[in-house]
Write a protein that binds this DNA or RNA. Structure first.
Lengths: 342, 342
DNA sequence: TTGTAAGCGTTATCAA
DNA sequence: TTGATAACGCTTACAA
């Protein structure tokens, strides 16, 4: 097996009888090099099959042009779209994206943060694991001036960039919509209250009930462990078996909402007449289920692009990072069959 | 903004009055260093907050411990699961995963391959863009002894690792299943015939028809551009409007199959009685649609793990890479409501 | 068991 | 406009 050797700037330099620094500059179109030399060098580089060694450049410049993305699970539609947005934006600017999945484990998240650091990523974009309380493992990035963006599942108390939707308003809108459809007893599916996004949506839910003079029944607030389909089925079945079942459900994700639809149908509960349901995220399943699921939009790709943009902008002109910049995106309710009573 | 300086092995060395090489070795538990020294060094490293600079190590060792993944779009459930499998396996072995999306564009694929090369990835795992004909942009990896694995959408004529399911058999089984349900006129939704996976499934479909003495009606083979929901809707509607419509559909992906179900329902065609449908991939939507979609399994996570394993094994003991190693995974038919007539 | 020194491929500084 | 040289932080012969 004879491997082709890597061509370096030295190879080009010696072939053209120039110095390596001239070659280096020419390849980056440095204006101090004459047009003629630049052309000659770039031509030779192409012919010889030169490929810059980004490793060496990174080491030298102490910047990797790499964005580390730390999320729970790629398979979640919201997260894969988020990554897609990040990747597109990063690519545009010549940055690479490296992916790390915490699988919603705090320990993994801590270790992966270390790994990203060791890899000297230029910036980090993170959506927290479900049960992360302590976020001190992110301090290392701040200490080094590495831009850090939390997206969607953000911590409550960390001074950095946050990108998320207006979750309070989202919860409020979704609940208001159900109220407008005539719902009087609205259940709410929520996730870990450590996660701001869930507690805020819940707060929006509560505020809407209050504004419309509906009593708050704590027993209708269902705290999920992982917002899975299975959990959604189980809890819906339980809810609908009660003496005084709800007539509406605002689920904080589509997976549990779809499970609710299926469970309700199995129990012959009419949707939306007897039970109006709205989810959140607008996952692909929302339009597949019958009746189609009303939901709140969660602009994943856009959030990815914005997150990456924050990182890239910061890298261009770093500021004191002892601040918090929150980007709140608007969210809309998409009304589909599962909640449309009129 | 005062940034913490990076601690290097030199900092540790001078603090402990040792040499940098001793520190370097101790940090990697090199047996030639005394237990006592190792402990002392590792303790100091921890206290001082040392983080290895992988960049420097990579440059020195000319290996990055990074696997480049080149795929069309992360959002596809099959691909995000594939990546997940790759990431988990890579993580285990201390490798990073960098993601590049071609968005099914041949030009992007060529450029991204270059970028991955410039980043000196240790290995590459790729699922081709829909319309990639020429695969010479991958030769650079072979020339350098960088392990290259094609997964799922593989080229026809490239000597390297291939990981895929037995697509011929998959197509055969799916078709056979429909025949066994009594279908006589089975339509087939297929993708670009440049992609082996689609042409092989089609070959399986044709072989099954032949084995069961059903005539092959070329007009029932539908060539899709992108296998999207929209395309599926349109083509199904057209098919069912014919004088002599099909009584079964074998769709090469679930998206188009689900679209077919929806379109058929809209036209009051009974599923599975009048039209039995089977898809492929077992995407999440398959169990959400009603009737639930029969489909062929596509073990994405497993394929990811295997692909990563091939890369890692090769890196452990490189061989002559002028060979082809095909890993064919088995696939099963999951019979659900959309095709179960008895 | 530990130390010295060279080198990985760039880029930046200074000098010519 | 170009060249010589040092440096980025690590690993690894080779020497002690």
């Amino acid at each position: 097996m004879t491997l082709k050797k890597d061509i370096t700037i030295y190879d080009i330099a010696s072939k053209l009888e120039l110095s390596s620094s001239t070659v280096s500059r020419a390849l980056r179109n440095n204006p101090s090099i004459s047009k003629k030399t630049i052309d000659k060098i770039q031509k030779a580089a192409k012919e010889m099959g030169y490929r810059p060694n980004k490793l060496a450049a990174s080491l030298r410049g102490n910047k990797t042009k790499t964005i580390g993305v730390l999320i729970s699970k790629i398979e979640r539609p919201f997260l894969s779209s988020l990554i897609s947005g990040i990747e597109v934006k990063a690519q545009e600017s010549g940055y690479n994206v490296i992916i790390a999945q915490s699988h919603d484990s705090y320990e993994d998240e801590v270790n992966l943060a270390k790994t990203l650091y060791s890899n000297r990523v230029s910036g980090v974009i993170c959506s927290l694991a479900m049960d992360t309380k302590d976020t001190s493992h992110f301090q290392q990035f701040i200490d080094k001036g590495i831009p850090l963006v939390f997206v969607d599942r953000v911590p409550r108390d960390f001074n950095t960039f946050l990108v998320m939707i207006d979750n309070f308003s989202a919860g409020y809108k979704a609940t208001k919509h159900l109220i407008e459809q005539g719902c009087k007893r609205i259940a709410h599916f929520t996730g870990s209250q450590l996660r701001y996004i869930y507690s805020e949506r819940k707060r929006g839910y509560i505020a809407a009930l209050k504004d419309y003079n509906l009593p708050l029944d704590e027993s209708l607030i269902c705290y999920f462990d992982n917002l899975s389909y299975k959990e959604g089925e189980k809890i819906t079945t339980e809810l609908l078996s009660r003496e005084n079942p709800p007539d509406g459900i605002f689920a904080t994700n589509d997976t549990s909402a779809v499970a609710a639809i299926k469970a309700a149908k199995k129990m012959n509960v009419k949707i939306p007449e007897d039970l109006a349901i709205i989810g959140f995220n607008d996952d692909p399943i929302a339009t597949i289920i019958e009746p189609q699921l009303s939901t709140g939009t969660h602009p994943a790709v856009k959030m990815g692009v914005i997150s990456a943009t924050k990182v890239l902008e910061y890298l261009k002109k770093p500021k004191n990072q002892d601040f918090m910049e929150i980007t709140l995106l608007n969210t809309d309710i998409i009304v589909r069959e599962s909640s449309k009573r009129k």
